[in-house]
Computed example of a mutant assay.
Amino acid sequence: MDPSFIIGLILAFGALYAMITMEGASVDALLLPAPMILVLGSTIGVGIASHTIRDTILAVKSLGRMVRGPKKTPAAVIPFLVGYAERARSEGLLSLEQELDDAPDDFTRNALQALADGTDAEDLRDVMEDEIASAATRNKVAAKFYSSLGGYAPTIGIVGTVVSLTHVLENLDEPDHLGHMIAAAFVATLWGLLSANFIWNPIAGRLSRIGAVEIERMTLVSEGMLAIHAGAGPQLVEERLRALSGEKGKIKGAKKDAVEGAS
Rank of each mutant, 00 (worst) to 15 (best):
I37K: 09
T73M: 15
I57F: 05
R54S: 15
D28W: 08
I37T: 10
R68V: 06
A29G: 10
L58E: 08
S50P: 07
R68I: 06
S26V: 09
P74T: 07
M36Q: 06
R65Q: 05
V27S: 14
L38N: 00
R54N: 14
T52N: 10
T43Q: 03
R65T: 05
K72E: 07
A49F: 09
A34L: 14
D55S: 12
G47L: 01
G47I: 02
H51R: 10
V46Q: 06
R68L: 13
D28K: 13
M36K: 03
V67T: 07
H51Y: 11
A59C: 09
R65G: 03
P70Q: 08
I57S: 08
R65H: 04
R54A: 15
V27N: 12
V27M: 15
M36L: 14
P70R: 06
I48D: 01
V46P: 02
G41T: 09
I48M: 10
I44R: 02
K72V: 04
I48S: 04
K71W: 06
S50W: 06
I53A: 15
S42D: 06
A76W: 10
A29P: 04
R54I: 13
L31I: 10
T43S: 03
T73K: 15
G69W: 01
L32T: 09
D28A: 15
R54C: 08
G47K: 00
P74V: 02
G45M: 07
I44Y: 02
L32D: 14
G69M: 08
A29I: 11
T73S: 15
R54V: 15
V27K: 08
V60P: 01
A49N: 11
I37Q: 08
H51F: 11
G41N: 08
G47E: 03
